[in-house]
């Protein structure tokens, strides 16, 4: 961009390209937003869309689908379980991962090469679904909410990102703290943690989004409906057409179209992310910039 400004004269082709490029980008944005908009209109429209027409605006505005979805017990239980894993899962993982990252960032960590390999290996080879399932079963994870938070307590990729960041922190403060008699725990708590805020914010947000969106572990390990996370409640309503999940919802009129109801359910479970992400995405991006620096 800097280079471009120095060029006083832009050729005709260059201008044509700029126009076409801008048009393409507008098209891209529409392609991203249209499915959401279409669904939103559907979920807010009292007129059934099973016949005729294409509308970009609700003909007859209604909130009845949302009222029905929000009166379902399972949606709220799903919200609670999701918030539980987002909260505890994120905090536990952030703590264990950053602590490990600090330890392994030290050149004099015993057998550092071995332990680094020990971690990285898990990124490229795993036991697979069935052996993991059988072992977690032995551990008593079936129908146990611990499966939401314990297996994710250390993320190797995140650990490497945090380690790379920590190794860019200048060593002087740590040196002087050590001269004052600080031990490794104190240095981690009082120097490393405060100075790693940017990367911790980024990794924390990744964990939050990951936990919010996680569904597979719940599908595999949870049996009771009351322990299911929001994504799985949503999945059951969408894919299995299961109205059982919406049971207990007060059906004021029987003419609720299942399609509209699904549309409303999607939005109920997505709105928090839609509202928050534009404000947080810069932290996500920043973390990639920072973490990808070679440590």
């Amino acid at each position: 961009m800097v280079a471009k400004k120095r060029v006083a004269y832009k050729s005709r082709w260059s201008q044509v390209f700029d126009g076409a490029n801008a048009a393409l980008m507008v098209f891209l944005c529409l392609a991203v937003l249209l499915p959401f908009w279409f669904l939103l209109v559907q979920s807010l429209d009292n007129v059934s869309r099973l016949s005729g027409g294409l509308y970009l605006w609700p003909q007859e505005f209604t909130l009845k689908y949302y009222r029905k979805v929000l009166s379902s017990k399972y949606i709220w239980l799903g919200y609670m379980n999701t918030l539980y894993r987002v909260g505890f899962g994120t905090l536990l993982s952030l703590f264990c991962t950053s602590m490990g990252a600090y330890a392994i960032s030290k050149k004099y960590f015993p057998h550092r090469t071995f332990w680094t390999f020990f971690m990285l290996f898990t990124m490229f080879f795993g036991g697979g679904l069935i052996p993991t399932f059988l072992w977690y079963r032995t551990l008593g994870f079936i129908d146990n909410r611990l499966v939401y938070i314990l297996p994710g307590m250390v993320g190797v990729y995140n650990l490497v990102m945090i380690r790379n960041f920590i190794s860019t922190i200048p060593g002087e403060m740590e040196e002087s703290a050590r001269l004052d008699g600080a031990n490794d725990f104190q240095i981690y708590l009082h120097i490393i943690l405060p100075m790693s805020k940017p990367i911790l914010a980024t990794v924390g947000l990744w964990l939050i989004v990951g936990n919010w969106n996680a569904w597979f572990d719940c599908l595999v390990y949870m049996r009771s409906g009351s322990k299911q996370v929001l994504q799985v409640v949503l999945r059951r309503i969408l894919n299995e057409g299961s109205n059982e999940m919406l049971e207990g919802a007060n059906v004021e009129d029987m003419a609720v179209s299942p399609e509209m109801l699904k549309a409303a359910t999607i939005f109920v479970s997505t709105i928090p992310v839609l509202l928050i992400y534009p404000f947080l995405q810069k932290y996500f991006v920043k973390g990639i910039y920072v973490g990808s620096l070679k440590g």
Binding site: Y102, F109, I130, T132, W135, D184, F185, Y188
Partner: peptide, 28 residues
């Protein structure tokens, strides 16, 4: 460096418990 080892310990436990032991299950 026992303090560092203690700090790294959760990593060892978690990866052993949730990644390496399932590798043993591969024999099925």
């Amino acid at each position: 460096h026992w303090q560092l080892v203690v700090m790294f310990f959760p990593v060892i436990v978690a990866l052993t418990l949730f990644h390496y032991i399932p590798l043993y299950g591969i024999i099925i």
